[in-house]
């Protein structure tokens, strides 16, 4: 057996299964988004659904909201994760327990975290009660609006809470493979701690940080259940809007739902390409 056949045989089941599921799913979504729906009498593909969503203020506001949620969550989570990783790299008493908790967070499903954040941060939630007990507020209305709010603070906090451990663990793994040598060399050559971090450590961590951040961005941009629990009645995050259009009892809105999910896919793929390029260039 030649290597080529062997490789083909090894890859075939995975590619067939995944290709079958993923490409057929994406392909049918694409067809439907062009309003090709023979069962409904739509046999002439057109761009009507895209035109409809791109001119709808509701869609554009939702797109903007989802981009804001994803960007803000990613930037905050990446910065805090960097700090957390640098902290957890040091040895200090109690570190084992803290790393265990960091990993515990990784296993908690988003939907559980979102409900927890809701009970914690709502205007009558646990923090509001503490503030009331401390005499800081007279009633729920005085407590800042942190969930179901116009700036999606609750949603962003949930992602930060959930993704800091995720990025931090990836960075920690990177740090372990890098070792401490490069920094020590820099320090021995007279660099300050900050300089050693800025010019030596950070560039080496950058590819891992970029890849992890891209995953977080894509997830925060496309997740459905988190904005469903923590979001506002309007505008809705894009995945929630798409789901609503898809489950509308009026079948005519189906192509629009499909077009929205294609927009989400396109943004995700563009991001993937961007990061793949950046990582490749960084590696060279």
């Amino acid at each position: 057996m030649t290597d080529r056949t062997r490789i083909a045989l090894l890859l075939a089941p995975a590619l067939l299964l995944l290709g079958g599921l993923f490409l057929s799913g994406l392909g049918l979504t694409l067809l439907r988004s062009f309003r090709y729906f023979p069962a409904l009498g739509l046999t002439e593909p057109d761009l009507g659904a895209y035109a409809a969503i791109l001119t709808s203020p509701g869609f554009l506001r939702s797109l903007g909201l989802s981009l804001w949620i994803a960007s803000a969550s990613t930037v905050l989570a990446a910065i805090l994760a960097l700090v957390a990783a640098l902290l957890l790299r040091q040895s200090f008493p109690g570190r084992a327990l803290i790393s265990f908790l960091v990993q515990l967070n990784l296993t908690i499903p988003h939907v559980v975290g979102a409900i927890g954040i809701l009970y914690l941060l709502s205007q009558s939630g646990a923090f509001a009660r503490l503030a009331h007990a401390a005499g800081l507020i007279a009633g729920p209305a005085d407590f800042p609006v942190l969930v179901n709010d116009p700036f999606a603070i609750g949603i962003i906090l949930l992602y930060v809470w959930k993704e800091v451990p995720f990025i931090a663990l990836i960075l920690l793994a990177n740090l372990q493979t890098l070792g401490e040598d490069h920094e020590s060399v820099a320090r021995s050559l007279g660099a300050t701690r900050w300089q050693a971090f800025r010019h030596v450590l950070l560039p080496m961590l950058a590819p891992g940080l970029a890849a992890a951040s891209a995953l977080v961005f894509a997830f925060a941009f496309g997740a459905y259940e988190v904005p469903l629990i923590l979001g506002q009645h309007a505008p809705k995050a894009l995945p929630v809007l798409a789901w609503q259009a898809w489950t509308d009892t009026d079948l005519a809105t189906r192509p629009e739902a499909m077009a929205m999910s294609i927009v989400i896919a396109a943004i995700g793929l563009a991001l993937l390409a961007l990061v793949a390029r950046a990582v490749r260039q960084g590696g060279e």
């Binding site: 995975a14 590619l15 995944l18 290709g19 599921l21 993923f22 057929s24 799913g25 994406l26 392909g27 049918l28 979504t29 694409l30 439907r32 891209a214 995953l215 894509a218 997830f219 941009f221 496309g222 997740a223 459905y224 995945p239 798409a242 789901w243 898809w246 739902a257 499909m258 999910s261 294609i262 989400i264 896919a265 995700g268 793929l269 991001l271 993937l272 793949a276």
Partner: peptide
């Protein structure tokens, strides 16, 4: 091809699937 489904959110394929 392997990376795309891992990165893309479920909402991108679920309707077609």
């Amino acid at each position: 091809l392997l990376l795309a489904p891992a990165v893309l959110p479920a909402i991108a394929v679920v309707f077609g699937l």
